[in-house]
């Protein structure tokens, strides 16, 4: 168990971050902090993909002109590309989420979910 954690700590860290993000989404009453939780949840997954691509002793996957490119030890580029795409998607989602929160704040005058529930119940 200890050995597993020592050698695979990046994967363990991913699940810790996932759990923290999920907890923030569920337990926090503040809508902005909920969105930060969503971001943390996604970032944990990005970290996981980068960890998957890691090669012991490998360089970053920017391949220079080399007569024998197959002999170089480099990290796998595909997960990096995936993470880049996923980051863009995540930024777009955050933007839409924040825009919705701005509108909710303008309409109800609160960012807290419990207050929001009371206001809506009164309507």
């Amino acid at each position: 168990m200890i050995e597993l954690l020592a050698s695979r700590y990046a994967y363990a860290l991913m699940f810790v971050l996932l759990a923290i993000g999920l907890y923030m989404m569920i337990a926090n009453e503040n809508l902005v902090k909920k969105l930060i939780g969503v971001n943390l949840f996604q970032t944990a997954i990005f970290l996981f993909f980068v960890a998957v691509a890691y090669v012991e002793g490998g360089s970053s996957p920017v391949v220079p002109a080399d007569p024998d490119p197959g002999a170089q030890l480099i990290a796998s580029p595909l997960p990096h590309v995936i993470v880049l795409t996923a980051i863009v998607v995540g930024v777009a989602l955050t933007a839409v989420g924040l825009a919705l929160i701005v509108r909710i704040y303008a309409e109800y005058g609160t960012l807290r979910e419990d207050t929001l529930r009371e206001v809506r119940a009164d309507d």
């Binding site: 989404m25 909920k34 949840f41 996604q42 839409v96 919705l100 929160i101 509108r103 909710i104 809506r120």
Partner: peptide, 24 residues
């Protein structure tokens, strides 16, 4: 109505979690 923004935010949070879990 303001209700639609709240519904959309709820869907955004749950939908993102769903898609992220799929990504794992």
């Amino acid at each position: 109505g303001p209700e639609s923004a709240v519904a959309a935010l709820k869907y955004l949070i749950l939908g993102t979690v769903g898609a992220s879990i799929y990504l794992i």
